[in-house]
């Protein structure tokens, strides 16, 4: 099965993932309402926003697991949602995704988890699979943990194993879904460094979805801030720090009150209290 050769134009294209006019609804709730994004090759692009703004949904839309209501998602020149099953699976082999929980297969040990995509998609001899798996595990610093079961790993280690698995097939891009949530400072530092290092060493394109602003900003080349179903602000980290928007300032600096109020909308406090009086 040969993949369609990318045309000369797409090959030179700087942009790997191009999102245009993306609209997505879950039941009554509008998650995205006209989102445009360009994710450039070789860069670490961060997508940030408050909890519940559908950042994970965005990754699933890029991976073709969800269908948008309107708009297009192009990855490497291919419209993800127009692809047939075969072509979509072929495209997914070139994408790695790191789930929030790691999503390791619980009945396989670390080695077999990393070997899983190789065994599923290639007919490499056992020796070569072993070498490749050990190389990937070495890259995330867990070569020594190869015989542990997922249940025996700490959260940070599980994510590193998942990362080794995500890069097992040498993908063109890796998507990270909240890689830092619930991590202690040390494993967070390790993950941050890994994302940056792997991106540069392997020539990957990385999309990091996160709400850990400071940490993510430290390694990102470009940042999109989404809220209320739209892109509120985008630019390199330095530009974002100087953003005139008070909302972005509040978000980037983590202030408790600002354009996003501390209080959930409510009637007047005094009036509300008095209402209970008969």
């Amino acid at each position: 099965m040969s993949e369609p050769a990318p045309s000369a134009q797409t090959r030179r294209d700087e942009v790997l993932v191009r999102i245009r006019g993306l609209r997505f609804r879950r039941g009554e709730r509008v998650i995205f309402d006209g989102v445009d994004m360009d994710i450039r090759r070789g860069q670490v692009t961060a997508v940030m926003g408050p909890s519940g703004t559908g950042k994970t949904t965005l990754l699933r839309l890029i991976g073709g697991q969800l269908r948008p209501e309107a708009g297009t998602v192009e990855v490497d020149g291919q419209d993800v949602h127009r692809l047939g099953r075969r072509a979509l699976y072929a495209l997914r082999r070139r994408m790695g995704m790191l789930f929030q929980s790691g999503a390791l297969l619980t009945d396989l040990d670390v080695f077999e988890n990393v070997a899983f995509p190789l065994r599923e998609h290639t007919r490499l001899p056992e020796r070569m699979i072993r070498d490749l798996v050990l190389m990937k595990l070495e890259a995330v610093g867990l070569r020594g943990a190869r015989r542990l079961m997922p249940a025996e790993l700490s959260g940070g280690m599980a994510r590193r194993v998942a990362l080794a698995r995500a890069i097992a097939l040498d993908p063109m891009m890796v998507m990270y879904d909240e890689p830092f949530t619930g991590q202690d400072p040390i494993s967070m530092g390790v993950l941050l460094q890994l994302i940056r290092l792997l991106n540069d060493a392997l020539g990957l394109t990385s999309i990091v979805v996160s709400h850990d602003v400071q940490e993510t900003a430290a390694i990102a080349d470009y940042i999109y801030v989404i809220a209320g179903g739209r892109v509120v602000e985008h630019g390199p980290p330095e530009a974002l720090a100087r953003s005139p928007s008070p909302w972005v300032q509040q978000f980037m600096q983590g202030l408790p009150d600002g354009p996003v109020p501390f209080h959930y909308p409510a009637p007047d406090y005094a009036a509300d209290l008095l209402e209970g009086v008969p």
């Binding site: 697991q65 072929a90 997914r92 994408m95 789930f99 929980s101 999503a103 995509p117 599923e120 998942a162």
Partner: peptide, 10 residues
């Protein structure tokens, strides 16, 4: 998310 993970691994 193991099933989703598999899907994303094609």
């Amino acid at each position: 998310e193991q099933l989703s993970g598999m899907e994303m691994m094609a």
